[in-house]
Design a binder for these strands. Structure first.
Lengths: 345, 345
DNA sequence: ATGAAAGCGCTAACAT
DNA sequence: ATGTTAGCGCTTTCAT
């Protein structure tokens, strides 16, 4: 009849089920993975045994045998930032459609943390990794990919590597933002970069330059670079004091993202500067709440959901017959609202 | 010298390293897990072999042997909602401190999806699960916990179960919100609940009732329940039209969370109703951007980071000698800003 | 300090 | 349709 009760460790495994149903382990395995191949009667018997024993399949064991893992790792700069939160959510949704799951990490712009996460993920033999890298050097990721863990870059160009990438045209985004301000008449514009080292931001900076040139202006005279502590969420707010001390006083601020713009708005309000009369502010991403800020935020919209879904798509299709490593580029879009206006004359 | 090159599957394992360093597999294992026990010379030799072979440890295999998993699953209602995003971020930080990682899921208030996630997590033998459950019945989770997967409830009371829980005093929160509005003179208040079935929300609803009673008023006359499609992010905005059609016209709206409040603000703006002159709005959570909304949002603050960290703490300490299953309660706090005011007379 | 051997829970040929 | 056998990559007694 039923076999032994105590299965070595806590729960009962395939072995106990086999014993209880008087079949071999492989039959149980088949019930799990190829039900059609098992006779209906035996199958029922096995299924009953599973219920009785509270059997829970251990997938980790299966993966040891070579089955592809169903967990995917994502590393973003900060998962609490609404932009990344929305992207990650889109990734999650796509993964769930394929029965996969997402291990989500925030690097906080720290190389060491990024490194640690990558190592953990590789050791856990994940199905693949989606990453918005801090490290400007891509070779570590290329090697990782070569060792068998597919990598998809998020909002980061693949450069001359053969990695997959899903990016936004950040150069264009920066250009859009700057051109908008120039058109309004601004001639002294702060480019507030959390960390210019990040590819994404530097591309936008180049775009801003380009907009100046296109307007027949000297970027060096128009654009002022201000950095704030990258990780600090109140960095942008603190940076406002710096900006207000500048002479000649700038009339507009281009922010890294909408969350940073919120900080800037707060700082300006504290300083009694009205927006846009005293200072124009432009964000980036167009997160859900951007339109309800005070004032409604002019910003550059990113296709967050598409970005995330595309990244997951690319990752999951790695290994497919027709799969080709490629770079997908999404184009940002200027959304003019009320935080930008003509400079005070 | 060096052993064979091709190690069955792609990468080289402990076996290849052992061969290359002319030691046994157990010695390699010791270098990995008990370095002190290996002679410095041999250790060096092994380490060199590892480098040469690009050895990457496979932790999945280790866990098969009974090592506790280092992945924790979290299931929230919607990871893109800034409230949960911040909580999840706090969980992540605490986990990383212990070398663990977080599998993040959104149930979107769907029982089926919650169920699916739980099953996946159990099958993957995770270290434990942190969940803000949709299912009002806790017995499934109790059984899960009994089968060996520790469960910590997030923002959900443990009731009479012996699960761990980290909760907020939602009753108090609802009371704070309603009392504030009553004090301002509102006598017709909409309680806009995404889904009253969720424990969290119904507790707040009870709190609102209590505030009415405390003010000597009949809750049934003061409070109006309006529901919007739970999952739809534009539900709250759409609900505004409903609310504005009500007679007598309510003068205030209590929202489920700040994200919903953003939708309500948008809806009101579209309808040309000014806030707070035409309608008072109160949110919940006090997310980062709440203070910069138009108008700055009155809301009930939750200790998001503490909530998340405490949940992770509780989960990680499960199994510790002095560990006791318990319920931690955080107290919310009213933050009065500019979206609430006296009703138009 | 190092090695030999057994096995974690499951899958996958290959029999029967 | 079902069973037998041989591992996946690593850890872990227990010897030596």
């Amino acid at each position: 009849m039923a076999g032994e009760r105590v299965p070595a460790s806590g729960r009962s495994g395939i072995r106990e089920v086999a014993a209880a149903a008087s079949v071999s382990e492989s039959t149980v395995s088949n019930v799990l993975n190829n039900p059609q191949v098992v006779a209906a009667r035996t199958r029922r018997r096995v299924e009953r045994a599973m219920e009785e024993l509270d059997f829970v399949r251990n997938r980790a064991a299966g993966q040891l045998r070579g089955a592809p893992s169903s967990v995917v790792g994502s590393i973003v700069l900060d998962s609490a930032n609404p932009f990344f939160a929305e992207v990650a959510r889109a990734i999650e949704d796509r993964l769930v459609e394929s029965g996969c799951m997402q291990l989500l990490f925030s690097s906080d712009l720290h190389l060491a943390r990024e490194h640690q996460c990558l190592k953990l993920l590789e050791e856990h033999a994940v199905r693949g990794i989606i990453i918005n890298p801090v490290n400007p050097q891509l070779d570590g990721l290329v090697r990782l990919s070569g060792r068998g863990t597919p990598v998809v870059l998020l909002d980061r160009s693949r450069g001359d590597t053969d990695l997959c990438a899903v990016t936004a045209d950040n150069l264009r985004g920066g250009e859009l933002a700057a051109a908008h301000l120039l058109e309004l008449g601004h001639r002294r514009i702060v480019f507030l970069g959390g960390s210019i080292t990040v590819d994404t931001i530097s591309a936008r900076r180049v775009g801003a330059d380009r907009a100046c040139v296109a307007a027949g202006l000297d970027p060096a005279e128009v654009l002022v670079d201000i950095r704030h502590a990258p990780a600090a969420i109140d960095g942008p707010e603190a940076a406002v004091d710096h900006i207000l001390a500048l002479r000649p006083l700038p009339t507009a601020i281009i922010c890294t993202n909408d969350t940073a713009a919120v900080g800037v708005l707060r700082g300006l309000r504290r300083a009694g500067v009205s927006v846009p009369a005293g200072m124009s502010v432009i964000g980036y991403d167009d997160v859900h709440f951007a339109s309800e800020l005070s004032p409604p935020l002019t910003t550059v919209r990113q296709a967050k959901a598409s970005l995330g879904r595309a990244a997951a798509d690319l990752l999951l299709s790695d290994g497919d017959p027709g799969h080709r490593h490629q770079e997908l580029v999404f184009t940002p879009e200027l959304v003019v609202r009320a935080s930008t206006g003509n400079p005070r004359t």
